[in-house]
């Protein structure tokens, strides 16, 4: 491509019009600034705790679920567990004698 064509290309690109600024653009900037300010403001202990609440609640539900499952398991296998414990105790007593 020769220089004259390159100049024509650049000259044509120069004429391109800038797009219209969207309606209410300044309001979206102000909202973005407010969001940014909220993000960067240091949080108090209770605010941080409040933010963590969903995770803490989920962790508590998991722990409670595990406890119930463990309890249920041991209730079902009570005889076996008791027998195991008894055997272990007798072996220990026998071994000590």
């Amino acid at each position: 491509m020769n220089d004259s064509n390159i100049q024509k290309l650049l000259a044509a690109a120069r004429k391109e019009q800038a797009p219209e600024v969207p309606f209410n653009f300044e309001n979206s900037v102000v909202s973005a600034i407010r969001r940014d300010q909220r993000r960067s403001t240091p949080l108090s202990f209770f605010e941080q705790l409040n933010q963590l609440f969903p995770r803490l609640a989920a962790a508590a539900v998991v722990i409670i679920g595990l406890c119930i499952a463990t309890e249920f398991y041991f209730t079902q296998s009570e005889t076996t567990t008791t027998a195991d414990v008894q055997q272990a105790a007798e072996e220990w007593l026998f071994a000590s004698n």
Binding site: E16, A18, P19, V21, F25, E26, N27, V29, V30, I33
Partner: peptide, 27 residues
Amino acid sequence: SPDDFGEIVRQHQGLVFSILYRYERDA
């Protein structure tokens, strides 16, 4: 407050758009 900054945005938004559109086509 940031609300006052809205006036500055209104005054200069045309300038900023006229600079940036040279580097990106997606509105």
